[in-house]
Design a protein around this nucleic acid. Sequence first.
DNA 1: GCTCCGATTATCT
DNA 2: GATAATCGGAGCG
Length: 198
Amino acid sequence: MSSWPELRGPAEEVAPRLLGAVLRKGPVAVRLTEVEAYAGHLDPGSHAYRGPTPRNEVMFGPAGFLYCYLSYGMHVCANVVVGEEGAAAAALLRAGEVVEGIDIARSRRPGARTDRDLARGPGRLCQAVGLVLDDDGADLSGPAVELVLPGQALAHEAGPRTGLRLAPDRPWRFWLPGEPTVSLHRRHPKASAHHPDL
DNA sequence: GCTCCGATTATCT
DNA sequence: GATAATCGGAGCG
């Protein structure tokens, strides 16, 4: 039963369709403004590149479920599983605008100076929405966690992925133009070394 | 506004 | 034991 016909197809085609979608957990909901595509076993940048493990097994399942993992030992990041079952394709939820439960979101992110910082960045988004490691595998049909797709695809822009050590060059980051919650910066963790550029 | 840097732990080799 | 799809704070303009 493919209850998510809109999520079929390659990650880089499905991911932009998530822009403008609303993700809710309980009282807090965000409207997604920035996502990133990961093409599973075909993609050196994906956690699924080297095959199934206990952590990434949700990605190898059907579309419409949440894949959550711990990043840098302290931040939770969330993906929507997309594509055909077994392809392990997913879209990382990079940023959003809080559209419901903003007071609760603010209390969860006391460090945020402005509302636009509440869910700007994958770790911040999960903190604002209240997503934790235990939400790994959640069914996005609800009721605990729910995803509502926009009626039609919205106009978007694309650019290279950020933060990855491997395959950062694919233009698989997608965002809604003009959204203040979108962050277009940040370089690699470490430039490993200075190559004299030949 | 920008860049640099250290924190912290589940997961995999 | 090394790695990592990040964040927040410090320092500068």
